[in-house]
């Protein structure tokens, strides 16, 4: 007989660990973003399980019948909030990834970082040892100081 609580909690901690591993070990930006989503899912599940009790009923009164033992409504409301926050951030992250892919033609973390450092250095007028040229795209970005 398997303990339900053990299974549920293992699921939550498992998701958290898989998410962290995905963020730390993969080098593709979209995979890293999915790692963040998994980590968030694990944290949400853990929050939902915080005051979980076996066999508790949903905290809703249907036709005037009050269940004997109702589940804690607070974590459910919190997780609803956390999920919506996660969706908003995920959408923004994917928009950014789209623009990065369009600008650099790659989503490899190390390559993106190298190109970004080049851009920053080129804009600052510093020669990085690894690159001799500053990309022309940087020049167009400097519209702000014109006024």
């Amino acid at each position: 007989m398997l303990d339900t609580g053990l299974v549920l909690y293992s699921g939550a901690f498992g998701l958290i660990l898989i998410g962290i591993a995905g963020i730390v070990l993969s080098s593709h930006l979209v995979r890293i973003i999915f790692g963040v989503a998994l980590l968030e899912a694990g944290a949400n599940l853990l929050l939902l399980l915080a005051t979980w009790h076996e066999g508790a009923a949903a905290p809703i009164i249907v036709a005037g019948r009050v269940p004997d033992r109702m589940a804690d409504p607070v974590p459910q409301a919190l997780v609803l909030t956390a999920i919506v926050i996660g969706v908003g951030i995920l959408a923004l992250a994917l928009s950014l990834a789209l623009r990065v892919q369009r600008a650099y033609g790659t989503l490899d973390m190390h390559e993106v970082r190298r190109r970004m450092e080049q851009d920053i250095a080129g804009e600052a007028g510093i020669d990085l040892p690894s690159s001799s040229h500053a990309p022309a795209a940087v020049q167009t970005a400097r519209q702000e100081g014109g006024a």
């Binding site: 890293i32 929050l47 992250a93 990834a97 623009r99 970082r113 970004m116 851009d119 795209a137 940087v138």
Partner: peptide, 25 residues
């Protein structure tokens, strides 16, 4: 709206969301 700023924002977003998820845990 420069390529560098998008890349920096995305990398910041990842670190920050990672941290926020840990805080939620």
């Amino acid at each position: 709206s420069s390529a560098g700023s998008f890349a920096a924002t995305l990398r910041y977003l990842i670190v920050s969301s990672f941290g926020a998820a840990l805080a939620l845990t």
